[in-house]
């Protein structure tokens, strides 16, 4: 790669693997995010293909969490200033006519730590459907379907009315994924979903992500390169707010194009 400072591509360049334009479900274009005078993301342009798992990796503080939070308009809740475009199926989600609440229903999110509500397992999964005032049958069906997809159904089918807080950490995180899936989002964003889980629970979540891409587009932030290599079809590398490389995962890890990427994945920094 050539162009920008430190071997970074010039801001605004769309960096991405060659996949057909019609495969693009979510696209950022010259996305720049500031917190006061500090620039957190600098002109990130990136296209995510549908029904694939895309991973975003990079050292702590590189802006990867901010990037996913821009994709469903969560970033602005923290008072960040966002410029540039994010397009979901061609529509700019930062268009003033677009309601951020609608955006977040279409583009779901799972957080670093499980964030179950202090209600029953059933009510947790039903949350999004209740917001849309769905009928009892729709909610019932949605809860069962989502729990199955999140690989939690067999473990909790007898205990739907038990408090969700009684579940283990790994179960809670899969419950949060079920909650996000219940409203049938077009894209599921995951911000380091396994960072607070033990290896066995992590394995279960990763297996589930693998299943999910048959129906969903998943964008996962991870600090763990092995995880990206295991679950992602495509991997992006962010460094100091700049997008360095976005590549098909095997290509990314076996023959990265940027020197910076190579240094990172070979453990020379980060």
């Amino acid at each position: 790669m050539s162009g920008g400072p430190d071997g970074l591509p010039p801001d605004g360049t769309v960096v991405g693997p060659p996949f057909p334009r019609e495969e693009i479900i979510l696209l950022t274009s010259d996305l720049t995010v500031r917190s006061g005078p500090r620039e957190i993301l600098s002109g990130v342009s990136l296209a995510f293909p549908r029904q694939k798992v895309s991973a975003i990796i990079g050292p702590s503080g590189c802006g990867k969490t901010t990037l996913v939070r821009c994709l469903n308009r969560m970033a602005e809740l923290a008072g960040l200033t966002i410029s540039g475009e994010v397009r979901y199926r061609g529509r700019d989600i930062y268009d003033p006519q677009v309601n951020p609440v609608q955006v977040r229903r279409r583009i779901g999110m799972v957080f670093q730590r499980p964030t179950v509500f202090p209600s029953s397992i059933y009510e947790n999964v039903a949350f999004g459907l209740r917001l849309e005032r769905e009928s009892r049958e729709v909610v019932d069906r949605g809860v069962v379907r989502s729990l199955k997809r999140a690989g939690l159904w067999e473990e909790v089918r007898e205990d739907l009315d038990r408090p969700a807080l009684a579940l283990s950490g790994g179960q809670q995180q899969r419950l949060c994924i079920a909650r996000a899936l219940a409203v049938e989002p077009g894209v599921l964003l995951m911000d380091e979903p396994t960072s607070s889980l033990d290896p066995i629970a992590t394995q279960k979540v990763e297996d589930m992500i693998y299943e999910l891409k048959k129906e969903y587009t998943v964008i996962i932030v991870t600090h763990n390169m092995q995880q990206a290599a295991r679950v992602a079809d495509y991997t992006a590398f962010l460094y100091q707010g700049h997008l360095v490389e976005f590549e098909e995962t095997r290509q990314f890890f076996e023959s990265p194009r940027a020197k910076l990427t190579e240094n990172y994945i070979t453990g020379r920094f980060g």
Partner: peptide, 25 residues
């Protein structure tokens, strides 16, 4: 705050967050 994020991230309005998530807590 994580409850607020989870609620808003699931597509609730702030009013829905207040009534359905924050109020019971």
């Amino acid at each position: 705050p994580s409850q607020r994020e989870a609620s808003l991230g699931a597509g609730s309005t702030r009013g829905q967050y207040l009534r359905r998530v924050a109020l019971p807590i």
